[in-house]
């Protein structure tokens, strides 16, 4: 049993390839998380313009990409775009799919955060001469982000997990590399390694999230 799932020789042999997968997963996360945050912030800022001509298309956009399964979106981009004469490669497709999908989720979180800041805050800021943008930047956003920090972190956790979808379009991230190693060694040990690594990088985030959530609860009391 241990020989099958936790074979030491195989761990040693698969180490470099799994590590390179880990590195790519980290790299991918460092790209898609800021990209999603950025996309989400833009969506939320647009939503704060309460004009119907902005609001309705925006809602449609956000709804659409939240309803669309991210795996399907990714495969569609990867397999479909070449037929439109656009060959982007796996990495770019992952980046775009995440920008669309997780950006919409982040956008809803930011929007809820902005809505949670009382209107009196903006009025006070505007009454001292701050512009709409300055009031947003210095007064509303800092409070908005603080109010939804647990949700932002929770979504980020999901995003990091979702980077494993990259394996489907041959992005050499952790899961993909582990499967490569598995097929080379005819042994599941590399997959177990990947599972353990996922757990090790995500667990601290989960702990942090629990603490934030508890603090938010205590603050509300």
């Amino acid at each position: 049993m241990i020989q099958t799932f936790f074979n030491l020789d195989i761990i040693v042999a698969a180490w470099p390839i799994v590590m390179s997968g880990l590195w790519n997963t980290i790299l991918l996360s460092l790209i898609v998380v800021p990209l999603g945050l950025f996309g989400g912030l833009i969506l939320a800022l647009l939503a704060s313009i309460r004009h119907p001509l902005v609001r309705w298309p925006l809602m449609a956009w956000v709804d659409f990409f939240r309803a669309f399964p991210p795996l399907v979106l990714l495969v569609l981009l990867f397999a479909g775009l070449p037929f439109a004469g656009l060959e982007l490669g796996g990495f770019a497709c992952v980046a775009i799919a995440f920008f669309l999908n997780t950006g919409s989720y982040y956008g809803e979180i930011f929007r809820a955060g902005i809505d949670s800041v009382p209107n009196g805050q903006v009025e006070a800021a505007r009454s001292t001469g701050l512009s709409r943008m300055q009031a947003m930047r210095y007064v509303v956003l800092p409070q908005a982000v603080r109010n939804v920090l647990p949700d932002l972190l929770s979504n980020t956790l999901e995003v990091v997990k979702l980077t494993s979808l990259g394996s489907v379009v041959a992005v050499p991230e952790l899961l993909y590399e582990a499967r490569q190693a598995q097929s080379l060694t005819y042994n599941p040990t590399p997959i177990v390694m990947a599972a353990v690594i996922y757990f090790l990088i995500l667990w601290p985030l989960v702990r942090l999230l629990s603490r934030l959530e508890n603090r938010a609860l205590a603050g509300r009391r």
Binding site: P118, G120, E123, A124, S127, T128, V139
Partner: peptide
């Protein structure tokens, strides 16, 4: 200057 009932401090 404007002062509000609910202070509205940041």
């Amino acid at each position: 200057g404007m002062v509000f009932q609910s202070f509205n401090l940041y």
